[in-house]
Amino acid sequence: MLSEKSLAAIAHERTKYPAEQARSALLAALRIAQEEQGYLSEALMAYVADLLGLPAIHAYEVATFYTMYDLRPVGRHKLCVCGSVSCFLNGSDAVIKHLSERLGIGLGETTADGLFTLQEVECLGACKDAPMMQVGDHYHENLTPESLDVLLAKLRGGSDDVR
């Protein structure tokens, strides 16, 4: 169900823990699986659990506990706007409103073209550069309507790696 590359990455994760603690690699294995397949389907969670010799329910518990796992398909770019207090004080609601108008979707929704999913998340630990959001691996900070528009244009332009 997973590529050789992902399987090798999971095998590498296991080496970080004592041999009898394969379970420690579960969070990483789920992340690697999700990176490859976009989201964690039921079959994929069960597969990952099996790789590590764990009951499927175990992977399911973990996948539903942590917010970074997606159990449903999401857009190619997940726009995670921080709405916690420091960002809130610096206008995170306006950021969400702006994105929502530009993309024509509400929170938790995905654009029809499958490009964007808009989410409000809790504190991402970049409070001094509020308001901010995370897209993929990157933090985008001190957001303004202008910087948002520039970013959206770049993402629409097909770039995945936008810093």
């Binding site: 603690q21 394969a22 379970r23 420690s24 690699a25 579960l26 969070l27 789920l30 992340r31 590590l52 764990l54 175990h58 518990e61 973990v62 506990f65 942590y66 917010t67 970074m68 796992y69 809790e122 504190c123």
Partner: peptide, 19 residues
């Protein structure tokens, strides 16, 4: 993997154990 509670030291250990 996304959970503030993992900052609590024993929750962090549970997470490290894959739970």
């Amino acid at each position: 993997a996304g959970a503030y509670i993992c900052g609590e030291e024993t929750a962090l250990m549970e997470a490290l154990e894959g739970k």
